[in-house]
Amino acid sequence: MVDRLEATRRLLELAGDAPVLAGIAGPAFDLYRAGDRPENFYTWGAMGVVGGLGLGLALARPDRRVIVLDGDGSLLMNLGTLATIAAEAPPNLVHVVWDNEQYEVTGGQPTHTARGADLAAVARAAGVRRAETVRDLDTFCRTLERSLVEPGPWTIVVKTRPGRSGRAPIDALRFRFLDTEGFRRALGVAPA
């Protein structure tokens, strides 16, 4: 099993200047802890929507690798997104799903991945051809490196150790997550 915070740090080392979009709670908190940067976009609501957000950005910016950090609970809320990603098939989209088999931020209630649901298999069945499950950090890093150069879309399900990485950085995120224009600026987008 992988430590999510450590894996997020390694991901930022490998990501270069690729934009990284993080889903609600754990993925966003650990992205902030691992290293805030202008190319990070944090959501703090809209559970289940970050995959669609990454799809839209990947379609709008085919010149950039787009990395999404999702969670098992969130993705289970919008499994249809996998079918839309497969149908549009943006080669530059890397959808990482941290799968700790629980709704961590609400107290650790088990998700259905704890009872056998296999999100990489769902992704493959939806038509995402590059869909893999990884269970250790080295395999994660190697798979991520491939996903950053080989055509996707990719779904990388990472089995992570349950448990929080510490107190949530809510005071910092309260302001940071509002900086939509700063993220667009980091991607070279002119003001709306």
């Binding site: 934009p19 979009l21 976009f41 809209a46 929507v49 970050v50 995959g51 669609g52 957000l53 990454g54 799809l55 839209g56 950005l57 990947a58 379609l59 709008a60 910016r61 950039r64 997104t81 839309t84 939509t180 993220f183 667009r184 991607l187 070279g188 987008v189 002119a190 709306a192």
Partner: peptide, 12 residues
């Protein structure tokens, strides 16, 4: 809504 929001982030 996620898709159109992501497009906006990328300038579309």
């Amino acid at each position: 809504l996620g898709v159109v929001s992501g497009a906006y982030l990328g300038g579309v």
